[in-house]
């Protein structure tokens, strides 16, 4: 895993999980991260939908990367992404109407999630199909994980439940603020602090004293 050897497909997969985590390290895709994480179920659904679009668009863009003129590549990418998002939108509506309602406009808004266009531009447009697939999958799972960390905290504190199951005795007073928009900002801010501290400690350990 030394940095001098060319990255393998596994490396492309793993980097999205932690080292280049789209939410906590690259600070991309903030809108869905904050908006749909008021419960753990919503967070997972949003994460999976984004992962699907990310993998499919990475695959498609990587496959056509030699045929797209440089000047029109962004438009091509975004139209491809919009197509896959439409597929996801209709699929979710078919699977679970309540979920579709809960996520609302944010399913369609996957189109403008900077993570997807960012990976298309930074990775899939330049790399073969297999690494692009791994990259998309890794970033997608990293994104889902990040959403889940937020969703769990907000649901447990804000409603006293986890995946809809009550955790506390009836006397527990839920912190309503956590499921409101402000709670999203506060939770993400707190997680950022935790991850900054972890990364700093890691760096301090890896550097020779």
């Amino acid at each position: 895993m030394s940095s001098s050897s060319p990255p393998t497909t596994t490396d492309e997969f793993i980097k999205g999980l932690w080292r280049e985590n789209p939410v906590f390290v690259q600070v991309l895709g903030m809108c869905p991260t904050l908006a749909v994480t008021n419960s753990a179920v919503n967070a997972v659904a949003m994460g999976l939908a984004t992962t699907f679009v990310l993998v499919m668009s990475n695959l498609a863009i990587s496959a056509i990367r030699r045929f797209v003129p440089k000047q029109v590549r962004i438009v091509t990418y975004i139209l491809l992404i919009a197509t896959f998002v439409t597929v996801v939108d209709y699929a979710i509506a078919a699977i679970s109407l309540p979920l579709h309602k809960a996520l609302g406009a944010f399913i369609s808004l996957i189109v403008v999630n900077c993570i997807i266009l960012g990976r298309a531009e930074a990775f899939a447009g330049k790399n073969p199909i297999l690494p692009s697939l791994a990259d998309g999958l890794g970033m997608g799972i990293g994104f889902t994980g990040a959403l889940l960390t937020l969703g769990v905290v907000r649901e447990v504190l804000g409603m006293g439940t986890l995946f809809g199951v009550a955790l506390f005795p009836a006397a527990f007073q839920p912190w309503v603020i956590m499921v409101l928009p402000a709670g999203g900002f506060f939770t993400l801010s707190a997680w950022m602090l935790v991850f900054n501290a972890l990364r700093r400690r890691q760096r301090a350990l890896s550097e020779p004293a």
Binding site: V27, I177, L180, P181, A182, G183, G184, F185, F186, L188, S189, A190, M192, L193, N196, A197, R200
Partner: peptide
């Protein structure tokens, strides 16, 4: 140093939201 940057901005955004 730890708080500077995104973490601080997000906390401010939270207070604005309240």
């Amino acid at each position: 140093d730890l708080v500077k940057g995104t973490a601080a901005s997000l906390a401010v955004a939270g207070i604005l939201s309240v």
